[in-house]
Computed example of a mutant assay.
Amino acid sequence: MNKVSEKYAPALLKEKRYFPNLNGIRCIAALLVVCHHLEQAKHAYGIANLYEYPIIQHAGRLGVGLFFVLSGFLITYLLLDERGRFGNVDAKKFYLRRVFRIWPIYFLIIGLSFFVFPHLDLLAFPGTEEKLSVHATERLILLALVLPNFAFVLYDLPYWCAQTWSIGVEEQFYYLWPWLIKYPKNRLVILLLFLGITGGILFLGLDYLDPDDQTRNAIVGTFIGQFRIQTMALGGLCAYLVYYEKHYILNLLFRKDVQLIVYTVLVVLFLSGIHFFGFLELYAVFFGFFVLNVSCNKNSVINLENRVMIHLGKISYGLYIYHVFVIVLMINFLRAYVPGLDGATYQLTVYILSLAGSVLVSSASYTFLEKPLLSYKDRRFGR
């Protein structure tokens, strides 16, 4: 390896699966989503809010996009590493690992949202009754099949679990990605089959629902806008660069002056509220650059390794799943028991209570439910 390559080379060898700063990335992504939903919930209740500001409206989408890029990066690297070390990808173990990580609290929030939360006054949310009564069976079937993104675009979901749509997108990425890496010569066939099945499920749902043309177009447009497999694929491309040590590209991306320029542009775009739509969002490219640098570049200008961000990153999946019902709970609690609270005092209080409550619930879930299952998963099926 030449001196230039050594200077900017990935900090980790292929045999090592640990990447620094990833919990910090998860922390940032989760907090973006929490802020978005807090303002969205206040807007739904008619409480003073910032939801109309573009920076707030897009914060949730950007947070999810950051999660998607990171997920694509990690999953691709692990699959490439497994194929490189063992000559194959064990799809069965891959799916069992995903099941133990994703399904327990996914099904927990679904069950609570349909069978417990509707009966609690402190969790009342505007417009929920119709989403629990109309097409309830169809919703539950799709959710039971871990197709929450289909349930969301076709029938909508109760607010407490509406965020699970992104879990569906990630799960479908998992259905596709191992096979592309396991059978690289058949990638086109696998991709076309996957897209055919996905499109078939959507249009079967549309035929059953039988909406008018305008509504049908809106549903399809929403589904395509949320079905961001290409964003996760971009994260996969970043993993490819690292795993195969493409130093002629990494050397450029890891330069300190390039980092400073890219991050300055990213901050300016984010604060301006400018958003980009299309097959591949510009922000996803920024996120790929960010993930590559903080996780693989020993000369990264950003370091996210601190206690708070590490902890929030560890509990970020629970934070993402639980924060919506905690926000609703805290808003209703303040409305019921502190009705005179308003202005800046109210805004600060609802933020503190919502964030603290979300962290508390997520930490308890991680300690008593997720961590034991993850330990079993690691022992039984590997990481």
Rank of each mutant, 00 (worst) to 15 (best):
C238S: 07
V262A: 15
R255F: 08
D212A: 05
F289T: 03
N297I: 01
I219M: 11
R307V: 03
K246E: 11
K256F: 07
L329V: 07
V220H: 03
Y244H: 15
I310H: 13
S272C: 09
I302S: 03
V285D: 06
Q230K: 09
F325K: 06
T264G: 14
E245N: 11
R228F: 06
V294N: 00
Y248P: 04
F254H: 14
V262R: 04
Q226K: 12
T222K: 12
G273K: 04
Y320I: 03
V262E: 07
I249M: 14
T222S: 12
V328R: 05
F290D: 02
F270Q: 12
Y322R: 01
I321V: 15
F276T: 12
L304M: 08
A218E: 14
G278V: 00
Y243P: 04
M309A: 11
T231A: 08
L241C: 07
A284S: 15
N299T: 02
V285M: 09
V265A: 15
F254C: 12
C296Y: 04
L269Q: 14
V324T: 12
F223L: 01
Y248M: 05
V294F: 02
A218T: 12
Y320D: 10
V326G: 10
L234I: 07
L234V: 07
F223V: 04
V242R: 02
T222L: 09
I274C: 11
Y244N: 13
N306H: 03
G313H: 09
G313N: 10
V258C: 03
L241K: 01
L260V: 14
F277Y: 09
F289Y: 12
L266Y: 15
I261P: 06
L271H: 10
Q259G: 00
H323S: 05
Y244V: 02
L237K: 04
V268W: 13
I219N: 06
M232W: 08
I249W: 13
C296E: 10
D213L: 14
Y263D: 10
M309L: 15
